[in-house]
Design a protein around this nucleic acid. Sequence first.
RNA 1: GCCCUGAUGGUGGAAUUGGUAGACACGCAGGACUUAAAAUCCUGUAAUCAUUGCGAUUGUACGGGUUCAAGUCCCGUUCGGGGCACCA
Length: 918
Amino acid sequence: MDYKFSEIEKKWQKYWVENATYKVKEDSSKKKFYVLDMFPYPSGAGLHVGHPLGYIASDIFARYKRQQGFNVLHPMGYDSYGLPAEQYAIQTGQHPAVTTAKNIARYREQLDKIGFCFDWSREVRTCEPNYYKWTQWAFIKMFNSYYDNDANKALPIEELIAKFEKDGNTNVNAANNCTVKFSASDWKSYSEKEKEQILLAYRIAYLADTKVNFCPALGCVLANDEISEGVSVRGGYPVEQRVMRQWSLRVSAYAQRLLDGLDKIDWSDALKETQKNWIGRSEGAEMDFAVKGQDLKLKIFTTRCDTIHGVTFMVLAPESEYVAKVTTADQKAAVDDYLAQVKRRTERERISDRRVSGVFSGSYAINPITEKEIPIYISDYVLAGYGTGAIMAVPAHDSRDYAFAKHFNLPIIPLIEGADVSEESFDAKEGIMMNSGFLNGLTVKEALKTAKKYIKEKGIGEVKVNYRLRDAIFSRQRYWGEPFPVYYKDGMPHMLDESKLPLELPEVSDFKPTESGEPPLGHAENWCTPEGYPYELNTMPGFAGSSAYYLRYMDPTNDKALVSKEANQYWKSVDLYVGGTEHATGHLIYSRFWNKFLFDLGIVCEDEPFRKLINQGMIQGRSNFVYRIKDTNTFVSLGLKKDYDVTPIHVDVNIVNNDILDIEAFKAWRPEFETAEFILEDGKYVCGWAVEKMSKSMFNVVNPDDIVDKYGADTLRLYEMFLGPIEQSKPWDTKGIDGVNRFLKKFWGMFFTGDNFDVVKAEPTAEEQKSIHKLIKKVTGDVETFSYNTSIAAFMICANELTSLKCKNAEVLTKFVTVLAPFAPHICEELYHLLGNTGSVCDAQWPSYDEKFLVESSVKYPISFNGKVRFTLELPADMDKADVEKTALANDQTIKLLDGKPTKKVIVVPGKIVNIVF
RNA sequence: GCCCUGAUGGUGGAAUUGGUAGACACGCAGGACUUAAAAUCCUGUAAUCAUUGCGAUUGUACGGGUUCAAGUCCCGUUCGGGGCACCA
């Protein structure tokens, strides 16, 4: 009986839909398990064979957990706001909603073919009003909250107002960007607008003039994680610095909690490390340096307060507010000139061109410990946004300061014994201090401690922690995103009442910015409240909609809340999250922040959203090449190309089979190859190959639909998992797929004799038991550790064993079907029913294994001599050590190999190995 | 520059606490079936030498070390992938 995968797969996919097999409800009688995939942005190109990798991995786990009796939530949806649809709209006029809907339909069609156990009744789309209502709602909550550093959580803004009314802001310990200090009476004397302006500097969602990364090509501001090396991650367009009035989220207030939370979650070390780098905690001290002849103190931040005796100058960031104050009249022209020069440089130039530049301000500062005078410089190697925008420079022990000192001929004082600073600085935190007054003779570590204590005691400064993590800029000058629930009155932002949500995205006549340079929403008619107050023209960024979607899946149709208390209490958080590593510093930081904020408000019960996370590796493409002899239309086969001067040309992998080119298909592929001639080897044209990114331009894209058509979804699922460990990147090579396909055919064949379904009800033999229990043990262990590739090898081994045993035993085969079901659900569902079961194989209980079937009566001992294995000896498993040794030594081959030499030592590891040393 | 990862046959990969390196596949070669092809099945397949059989030597990026025994542990080096990067 042939394995007709196409019929089988269609049949059961239909059955699963009709029987709502994958619909899941909260059920307090069962333990829950939440398996989540990072939802896709539905791009126009559709899915290639790399996309489903993670989905298959999570699908197997979800099915496995279900078979173990868990109530499994395994939803899917679409991150459907985003730039590509909008760029396409600008080019073609096609509304992004139309493109997006079309792309979603295509994705869904492709996903459906693979047989996932998604509960589609819980689907979310970030661009739908009933979804983004809750994105807007969370934003309002953030606007109405501030971060209290003492309580270490977000609190209602009303509590802050109460504090201001009582004491002003002098004793308030809250995250802020407020530049004024005021008393209670000052507060009371302020106008409403002034009060609002101050509160804005404390809100978690705040509007401020911020130095932003603006990308002219995209017409849009970008967040830090959307830029890499001075260009936009999407598109690679240049980015420049601008000051713009933008919404931001005070993510930085959560820096420490985001860092601490990493210890509680089961993520890879690499990913945790990436997040740690991104958060960038550094512990140090803030110190005041007095400016000579002025009533002014400059605050600096340093992590090396042990090096204070080696400070020979100070540097201010060009943007520092102190610059104007310390610039003397004689230096004003030079400073202005430098500032202008800095302003002209783009971020990219600054990164790529690291010449030393700077200018003397004319003023001197006093080192608070040595009381020496040191010059104050201005240079763009000091960043305004980090620490205090001012540093104490220790050229002997900081390479950047060293370069600056050399360039401006400033003194360099070594502080560590034996450190040679004639050619470069000594940055390492090790050695014994010298030239350092009270720190002399201490190790660097001791000196750090002592110096901190000293600074605190003498009131010179305070111990402080700084973070690299910045607030997230939340405004985008784009159309295809969530509208802000904000209107403006008297120039100040106000939130819509929650009852007015969602504020729906309006239609616009043009997706480009307006003539006056306003964002596209400037084209919308009547984009204002019924009272006539204008709405915000920016929209939210891509990460807005993806920050809390995992919560919405718990209760997707609730119109009273983002998620009900009951649903949230039941599902709690995501137990297994599978997705790509490219979201390490974006989505995975923002959603943790967003979740912690909702946790502070008591809306969710867990403060970390994703308990375990697996990063699936990328599927790379395997490209094929043909070699054209230069200036001809003749192509030479791989093995012969060394004799010619050739140009390699990418050729569509779909017309190459096992690296042999289909010549006729190649001629038909493109008009210019129609008359191509070939130099063959053994009558064949052999192509070269390389592993590259899977992309259209390399002609190496493989579409899962084609694989499903040719081999079936179960084969595709199995093969993707068989390729190797999920976390690892690996090339896709369709030629290997025959192996798993053969396995499924063989597996199918095990249930038939001729065309008849043929299994027998009987007690399994010991050998059958051993084979199947070995399989159950292996697969159970492998699934728990996501080593699916080795599970599949185990299935193949078991199928081979049972075939050679001619096993037709119903009990054994049912167990096989049950453990294979998560991997290959269609074929297993069919066989499960043929075996006489009713209901879905999805609910077939995961079998347990019994060690008693696995015990071996004998062990094949490798007998090694000086570590080299010479032969094996089959001995009873329960033979004790001394007897094993005796038997091994008495063996003919041993005697021959020893050749009369005395043994020095004999090592016997029971059950494992014998090693004879002579 | 700093941090994290990884390197095993022609290819993808396996080896769970140090215990027969190369499981399972792909590919390749030979054979069976067939008029032929496809499909299927069987055998071989790390390298070198030997080959009538027995075998021997080398081998997990490279160089050292620990151990009866190292892909696995330790030290150093090279190369690939990822992250951070004038972050004081």
